[in-house]
Structure formats: structure tokens, C-alpha cells
Design a protein around this nucleic acid. Structure first.
Lengths: 214, 214
DNA sequence: ATTTAACTGGGTATTCTCACCCATTGCACG
DNA sequence: CGTGCAATGGGTGAGAATACCCAGTTAAAT
């Protein structure tokens, strides 16, 4: 970055203080970067982004109050010029694919090296796109599961809460048969044959809100 | 620490590089500490601990190859004078209680502050014990669940894999009725009334091996 | 405008879960 | 040397899940 260009303003959002400080240490090595805010939950992240409209947002996927993907959506809306890099500990292909589909600019796993992290930040700050080696390997070796529909996702969330068909039917104002149809479709798509495996899959693939279960 | 005492030798084990470097940065601020190894998985951790017999091990709960609690057990066996501090992102009371029961010397959540982390390391290096404020709050507001027996845990693991009673019975060489009895006991102890809730609970509370599901 | 797919709902039958009841064996702790 | 508890096994019955079959409506996409 040349000396006459304005400073790049960056926000770091992660509920783990140790990760924030490590990330800031890496960012500080890059010329012309200034940290304008550091937040530990999704709602604060959204507030600070609206306020500062930063050049870069480094974002964790799992945070209290608002999930990372919700923060991404709000950032695109309120601060469309902000580049976004995901920094996550999740290693499931489903989650990473969701972020790619949401058009994130960079993807880093928390296991990645100092050098790779720095390379990513530099690339994304220059308007580029960067998917870490580990993440793209995970994405490549994916057995692509058929897309799960919105309604199916709703039903899945309720199944994972332990609700049974009749109960779910009432909440969604549909018949129990339809709930069972959605459940059957989910199991067929995912390739399992019991609600137990269905839930294990959903939890692993991050199809549920990790911060509001049961 | 006085200038004439020998250096305190420390190993940091965490699969996230960013967490290791942040942790090492905190440790480096403490006089007389030297990092003798830094590892990213459980098996390497055990190997390095046998080799170095460090004064302190900073340990993550969820790592590839061998879980943190297994590393703790092996450390107590092969290097009984090593103090162990858990540094984890898990916030479930069950998991934290397991570590307390396993007689860990320190517990830190990854969300804890720089200062608290440093305080913890200093306390534990001096032979003390330190449970972070967040962690003890979680432990206090626990509704203590009745202890789950070994057999019940075996059955639970198989239920979570989606096996049904008859299948589980064959594997354990018992009758299906007994499997159902164990399942009923589990549900009564945990306070749920469906296998779906049972699995959600088990996954959240870390009663299952996170690295070998389905 | 025709096709595709999501969402909706029903029929039927088998199998499994779940909630009660009951008992025996063996081991550990006071 | 009982008392308690883990582990084993059984009976019964209501209800739920699972696996097939079927079809109508709506909305988006080609």
C-alpha cells in the first residue's frame, strides 16, 4: 500500500478475546491498517459497522446475539463497500459453502498459519478474494447434498428441538402429514434413515442456531 | 518469580494457530517463562509432554487425534508434576464439570480477557488453582444432572449414531429390552422425553466424541 | 405458456419409541 | 450383613416414526 493512500479501517468481530488479539496482531503488521473497532457479539458488530463503514470486516461465524451470516447480510446492506473475511473454527463443508454462496470475500480457518492469514488480509484489502488452502480442500471433497429448502430448514430446526410432528404442525399451521413429508425429504436428501442421524447432521453442518437449542 | 529460579517450561496445545500465538504472547509477558513446544493435535501433545515434562501445559479441549481430556490423563501419568490449564471455547457446564472432576489446575474460556488469562497462568505456575469467573458462573448455575453410568454412555453413543434398539442390543450382546431400559434411564436423568432431545443434549454437553460422528 | 419444483395433504402398514408395571443378579459401601 | 444401585430381562399398550403409495395448488423460471 502506498504512503499517500488513506488508512484501511478494519473491524474485528469474534467472541474469543484471544482470537481477536491474535488477529489484530497480524493486521498490525500490514502497513496502513488501523483497527477502528473490536467486538465480541453479532449485534455490536452490526452497530459498529453501520457507524464506521470500515474497509474490512474480519468475522467469526458463531457469535452470541446474531450469527456471523446475519452480520454479513446486514453489512452488505448498510455498508456495501466493506470487504468481509470469514475467520472460523468450523470445518464442515456445508457451512463454508453457505458463506461462499453469501459472497464472502475471504475464508480463513482458525487453524491457518500466520502467513496465510496475512496474505488473505492483504488480498482482500486490495479488492481481491482469498479462500484458504484448507478451506478449499474441504469444499472440493464435498459430496454435494441436494439443496435444503426453507420450509425443510424450519422443520429441521423444530425436529432438533425434540418436537414431534403434531407439535411442529401446529406451530407452522400445516398438517402433521406435511411435516412428515418434509422430514422424509430431509432424510432422503441427507441420506440418513433416522431422526437421530438427522439431528447429528444438522448440528455438525451448522443448519441450526448453535446459541438457542432446546 | 525471582531471578534465580529456573525457567518455567510451557507447552501450548491447540489446533487453532491463532489461539496458540495469542496464548504464547500472553505467556511471554510473564518473567521466567519459556515455550518449549507448540502443538496442534492431541497425539503430538502427548509426545511432547513425555519428552519435555514441562511445568505447565495449556490445553484445548477439542483437538484432532486425541481429545484434551485424554491428553490430560496421559499427562498425569507420564508427567505428574505438570500443571494443566484448560483453555476452551466450550461453555457447557457438563464439559467444564468433567475437567474439574479430572482435577485440572486451571480453567479459562477463550472469551476471557488478556488480564485474566495472565493471572491464571501466574497462579497455576505458582502451584495454585484458578477457575475463570465466566467458567465458575457456568458451573454454579448448573442443574446437576444425575451421574450417567458407563453402560448408559455406551448406549447413548450408539443411539446418537442413529442405531435402533435391536441393533444396539446385538452390538452390546444384551436384549433389546435392556437397551430400552438404559435409554429410558438416560431420558429420565436428563429430563427429556424424546430421542431427538436426548441427542441434542448429548452433542451439546460433549458426551460424545466430536470427531467421530455418523 | 409450459415446465419445474416447493409446499401442501391424504391412505395404509410396519416398525419403533416410550411410559408404565414387574423381577433377578452381583457388587460395593457402610 | 443388609441397603442401595448398576445391569440384566420381561409384559403391555398407546402413540410416533418411517416407508411406501397417491394428488392439488402456487410461484418461479425457461
Amino acid at each position: 500500500m502506498s504512503a499517500d493512500s488513506p488508512k484501511k479501517r478494519v473491524i474485528v468481530a469474534d467472541d474469543h478475546a484471544i482470537v481477536r488479539s491474535g488477529t489484530i496482531a497480524v493486521l498490525s503488521e500490514i502497513d496502513g491498517v488501523s483497527i477502528v473497532a473490536e467486538v465480541a457479539d453479532g449485534l455490536s458488530a452490526i452497530a459498529e459497522i453501520k457507524k464506521h463503514q470500515p474497509d474490512l470486516l474480519v468475522l467469526d461465524a458463531a457469535m452470541p446475539h446474531a450469527s456471523g451470516i446475519e452480520v454479513l447480510a446486514d453489512t452488505r446492506r448498510w455498508s456495501p463497500d466493506t470487504a468481509i473475511t470469514l475467520l472460523t473454527g468450523f470445518t464442515s463443508a456445508g457451512i463454508l459453502a453457505n458463506w461462499l454462496a453469501a459472497d464472502v470475500d475471504g475464508i480463513l480457518l482458525k487453524s491457518c498459519s500466520h502467513v496465510e492469514m496475512r496474505t488473505c488480509f492483504e488480498a482482500v484489502l486490495s479488492g481481491g478474494r482469498f479462500i484458504s488452502k484448507d478451506a478449499s480442500e474441504i469444499l472440493e471433497r464435498t459430496t454435494p447434498v441436494e439443496a435444503i429448502t426453507n420450509r425443510e430448514r424450519e422443520v429441521l430446526a423444530l425436529i432438533a428441538m425434540g418436537r414431534q410432528s403434531a407439535d411442529i404442525a401446529k406451530r407452522l399451521n400445516i398438517s402433521a402429514r406435511t411435516v412428515e413429508k418434509h422430514r422424509a425429504s430431509l432424510m432422503a436428501k441427507i441420506g440418513v434413515n433416522s431422526v437421530a442421524q438427522l439431528i447429528a447432521y444438522a448440528l455438525r453442518e451448522g443448519l441450526l442456531d448453535e446459541h438457542r437449542q432446546m
